[in-house]
C-alpha cells in the first residue's frame, strides 16, 4: 500500500461528514422543504394570527395574541422538519404493483438525532420560559390592578349571563357587559345551576363558573370596542346560545348607560 493510499483512508472530520450529508439529493430536498414550511408558519404567525385573533381590548388579550405568535414561531422549525419528512416520503413513495425488496437496515444517525433533540429542547425551553414570564407578568398586573378595581358579579344560568354592578353604582343588574375604559375590573363569577365558563373573548380571560364556589379574575380594558361573552363549558341544550355582548366605553358613555339602567355614577 502506497503512502498516498494510506492518506486517502483517513477518516473524514464530523464537519466534512455533515457537509457531505447535506449534499445528498434526498437530504437537500428535505432541508429545502423544511425551510419552506418553517417560513410559511412564521409568516402565518406574524401576519395572519394577529388578524385572526379577536381584537385585544386588554393587556391579557394582547398577551394571549403575542403568545400565539411567538409559540407558533418557536414550534415552526420542528413542524417544518416533520412535514418536510412527510413530503419527502410522499413524493418518493413507491409507484406500481410490485413492491421493491426491503432495503438494508440502518442505525440511527447519532449526529442527526443529537441535533434534533438539542434544537427541540432549546425551542421547548424557550417556550416554557417565555410562557412563565408572560404568566407571572399578567398575575402581577392582576394583583396590582385589583386594588382599585370595580367588582362585577357574573352569574351563569342555563343559558344566559347576568352581570351585577357594584352597590356604589346602585347594584343594578344587566344581561350585557359594559365596562369603562382604563378602569380595572374584578369579575366575581358564580353559576346559578350547572358549571359554565365565563369567557369575555376580547378581554383575554376565561374562568370557570361553578355553583356555590366563586372564582375571580381581573382585567383592565385599555381600548374601546365590542365584547363577545361566551360560555366555554358545555352546559346543556342551548349551550351554543349562551352568548351575550357588551362594550368597552368611554367613562362618559359608561356613566350614561349606568343611569339608563337605574344605577348612579360612583
Amino acid at each position: 500500500m502506497s503512502e498516498h493510499e494510506q492518506f486517502d483512508k483517513v477518516e473524514p472530520t464530523p464537519g466534512e461528514r455533515f457537509s457531505k450529508f447535506l449534499k445528498r439529493k434526498d437530504v437537500s430536498s428535505t432541508v429545502a422543504w423544511a425551510f419552506f414550511y418553517t417560513l410559511v408558519f412564521v409568516l402565518v404567525a406574524l401576519y395572519l394570527y394577529p388578524r385572526w385573533m379577536p381584537k385585544g381590548l386588554s393587556n391579557e388579550m394582547r398577551s394571549t395574541t403575542r403568545l400565539m405568535v411567538i409559540f407558533t414561531i418557536i414550534s415552526a422549525p420542528v413542524c417544518g422538519f416533520v412535514l418536510s419528512m412527510a413530503t419527502h416520503s410522499f413524493l418518493r413513495r413507491h409507484k406500481g404493483d410490485t413492491p421493491p425488496a426491503d432495503g438494508p437496515g440502518f442505525s440511527a444517525n447519532r449526529l442527526g438525532v443529537a441535533t434534533f433533540s438539542v434544537m427541540a429542547s432549546i425551542l421547548t425551553l424557550t417556550a416554557v420560559i417565555y410562557g412563565l414570564v408572560e404568566m407571572n407578568t399578567a398575575a402581577e398586573a392582576s394583583v396590582r390592578e385589583a386594588k382599585d378595581a370595580m367588582v362585577v358579579k357574573v352569574v351563569g344560568n342555563q343559558w344566559v349571563w347576568t352581570f351585577e354592578y357594584p352597590e356604589s353604582m346602585g347594584g343594578f343588574k344587566s344581561e350585557v357587559l359594559n365596562l369603562p375604559l382604563n378602569k380595572a375590573v374584578v369579575f366575581d363569577i358564580v353559576s346559578a345551576d350547572v358549571n359554565h365558563s365565563f369567557w369575555p373573548v376580547q378581554l383575554g380571560v376565561k374562568v370557570d363558573a361553578n355553583r356555590l364556589a366563586h372564582t375571580t379574575v381581573t382585567t383592565k380594558p385599555i381600548k374601546l370596542g365590542e365584547i363577545d361573552v361566551k360560555c366555554a363549558e358545555l352546559c346543556g341544550l342551548y349551550h351554543a346560545y349562551m352568548e351575550t355582548t357588551g362594550a368597552v366605553m368611554t367613562t362618559d358613555d359608561f356613566n350614561k348607560w349606568v343611569i339608563t339602567q337605574g344605577g348612579h355614577t360612583a
Binding site: 343559558w159 344566559v160 344581561e175 350585557v176 363577545d228 351554543a240 346560545y241 352568548e243 351575550t244 355582548t245
Partner: peptide
C-alpha cells in the same frame, strides 16, 4: 336570547 352574529342582531 340568541347569538349576535354578522347577520342577526342581539
Amino acid at each position: 336570547h340568541g347569538l349576535p352574529t354578522r347577520s342577526q342582531k342581539s
